[in-house]
Design a protein around this nucleic acid. Structure first.
Length: 569
RNA sequence: CGGUCUGUAGCUCAGUUGGCAGAGCAGCUGACUCUUAAUCAGCGGGUCCAGGGUUCGAAUCCCUGCAGACCGACCA
């Protein structure tokens, strides 16, 4: 990057960098800088009576400065938080040479630089716990100005709030918006809490393929890629279910994976093309057991994060206290539409959809129709955690038929805030039934349902060896994090949400500019009016072209006694 | 994919009827030894998203494009 493209503030910072080097200060030192305290720890534990923390070393980013002649206050931010520092000229520079204060601290350092300090903790006249600096080390010179967010009386001024910039430059977002960091700390705590719980139960964390020859285990459109040396297409997984079940066949009695899945579908505030799902499979259990297990997970996560089961989410308070109500899908539809769908044919269901004003198309089978009714009329009503159970067999091709009614399956979804949070079954382990269900999916696919499942022959082969009765559950981690951190958008719980590529800035000359350059090459300097006439450009086009050229420092306009001239640079 | 809105200094944002490009913070110069949105005096900083059109004249009006936000559609 040339100097012309840098803003004034960037140039000044580069100059300061150079001056630091001239003073013999390495702006990017290699040596370990060992700290012995953090900002929040000091603020929590310092007391004037005990007069502790009299020899502290900490490091962090300079976030604000208040310079007053021979003494200054500033704030540094470490990974825990911020603390004020007090820098006194004659104490930082005990000898005659006051360069470290007058030049380095006051002039050459900027907001955003990373420094290390040694000193002692004290309380200012205003009562703020601060660090009296005795020694200062430059650890990193920052070359770009940070957005400056200020705060007073809980009111935030000049917030860095542009969503696009926050997501594209998450590192800046994390530096200046402390609430953002908090969301991601909670996200990791959610995952750790779940992992801890599963390990207590003795379940085994595993990894399964992301590149799959057959994208199975869910109804969704996959991303496709290509393996060169095998010369075959491969798909990015849409789910890991079929692989985890193979492991249950293999003899593990509980396996789980925190998995990135990929779906080639629309993006909005609740959907990112890649997202994280926790899937767990436990042998010798059924979906009823899994319901209790699932509600325990939610309760435990809520307690770990908030110390209470009640969590604010938008205008609602969600209470994750167990147990949660269990409502069958048929009951749910009856409650919110008045129609009893049990035992109805595909034709009758189409009629019901028509009467309810639900849009349908011919490719939809019985299961999809019921799914539409539930999605349109019922789903959004379940704000508090609720299990919806016993889905129709057509929409659950991997689920065991219900032990009491073969039209239904042993499946539940956990609804929270009107959205699906988890999905679980008594897993289908009858290989012949499973083959028939796959074939039914194939027929749906031929009818035009582009989300119907492929037939995975190897998975069927595994089931033929025999899988114990098993219950499996998948939970959306992004969605759970949104619920637990009161985040309205999935982009707020992903460090790097998918974005359209940034537009490239081209410095290529336009056609008009090129034409003027050609003329200038034949004669330079030249009268401005003569050049303008030769170019044959309109006033506006001429103006754009010549301004463009001077901007790029390819030509310049000079005025002398004879008039205006244009000259090549 | 459709509708609405947005794009101006490093950040947050004004910009009237089309008539010299603005403020606060940040930056620079100076003053100031307990400040905290520090204060005081002075100064600099712009591809007004890009391209085209209308006009004597466009940040402003029109068209096209790009990027984003929100709401729908689709989906988890």
């Amino acid at each position: 990057m040339s100097n012309q493209e840098l803003s004034e503030q960037q140039v000044i910072r580069r100059n300061s960098l150079q001056k630091l080097r001239e003073l013999g200060i390495d702006p990017y030192p290699a040596a370990e800088f060992r700290v012995n305290a953090t900002s929040t720890e000091i603020k929590a534990n310092f007391s004037e009576e005990k007069s502790n923390y009299q020899d502290v070393v900490l490091a962090g980013r300079l976030m604000s400065r208040r310079i007053m002649g021979k003494a200054s206050f500033a704030e540094i931010q470490d990974y825990k938080g911020r603390i004020q520092i007090y820098v006194n000229r004659d104490e930082l520079c005990t000898g005659e040479d006051k360069t470290m204060y007058n030049e380095v601290f006051k002039k050459l350092l900027d907001i955003g630089d990373i420094i290390g300090i040694k000193g002692f903790v004290f309380k200012t006249q205003m009562g703020e716990i601060s660090i009296h600096v005795k020694e200062l080390t430059v650890l990193n010179k920052s070359l770009r100005p940070l957005p400056i967010v200020k705060e007073k009386d809980g009111k935030t001024y000049d917030a860095f709030s542009d969503a696009e910039q926050r997501y594209r430059q998450r590192y800046v977002d994390l530096i200046v918006n402390p609430q953002v960091k908090d969301v991601f700390i909670k996200r990791t705590k959610i995952i750790n809490t779940m992992r801890e719980m599963f390990n207590e139960y003795g379940y085994f964390e595993v990894e399964t393929p992301i590149l799959q020859p057959i994208p199975g285990g869910a109804a969704a459109r996959p991303f496709i890629t290509h393996h060169n040396s095998l010369n075959i297409p491969l798909y990015l997984r849409i789910a890991n279910e079929l692989y985890l079940k193979r492991l249950i066949v293999g003899g593990f009695d509980g396996v789980y994976e925190f998995a990135k899945d990929f779906r080639n579908e629309g993006m909005d505030r609740t959907h990112n093309p890649e997202f994280t799902v926790m899937e767990i499979y436990v042998a010798y259990k059924d979906y009823k057991w899994m319901m209790s297990f699932t509600e325990q997970i939610c309760e435990r996560v809520a307690l770990a994060l908030h110390g209470t089961t009640k969590v604010q989410l938008g205008e609602n308070i969600i209470d994750y206290k167990t147990p949660y109500p269990r409502v069958t899908m048929t009951e749910a539809i009856k409650e919110y539409t008045g129609y009893d769908i049990s035992g109805k044919s595909e034709e009758e269901l189409r009629e019901i959809c028509d009467k309810l004003g639900i849009e349908i198309d011919p490719s939809m089978g019985k299961g999809k129709l019921i799914d539409e009714i539930f999605g349109e009329k019922c789903e959004h009503n379940y704000i508090q955690p609720t299990f919806i159970t016993d889905y129709p067999v057509e929409m659950s091709p991997l689920t065991k038929k219900h032990r009491e009614n073969p039209e239904l399956t042993e499946r539940f979804e956990l609804m929270v805030n009107g959205k699906e949070l988890a999905n679980a079954y008594s897993e289908l382990n009858d290989p012949i039934d499973q083959r028939e269900r796959f074939e039914e999916q194939l027929r749906l696919s031929e009818k035009g349902d582009d989300e119907a499942m492929f037939i995975d022959q190897d998975f069927l082969r595994a089931l033929e060896y025999g899988m114990p009765p098993t219950s499996g559950m998948g939970m959306g981690i992004d969605r759970l994090t949104m619920f637990m951190t009161n985040s309205p958008s999935i982009q707020d719980v992903l460090f790097f949400p998918q974005m359209k590529p940034e537009k490239k800035v081209t410095v290529e000359l336009t056609e008009d500019e090129k034409a003027v350059m050609e003329l200038l090459k034949t004669q330079s300097p030249v009268y401005l009016n003569e050049l303008k006439e030769k170019s044959g450009l309109s006033n506006k086009k001429w103006d754009k072209a010549i301004k463009g050229l001077t901007k790029h420092k390819l030509a310049k306009v000079e005025k002398n006694d004879d008039g205006l001239f244009v000259e090549l640079v």
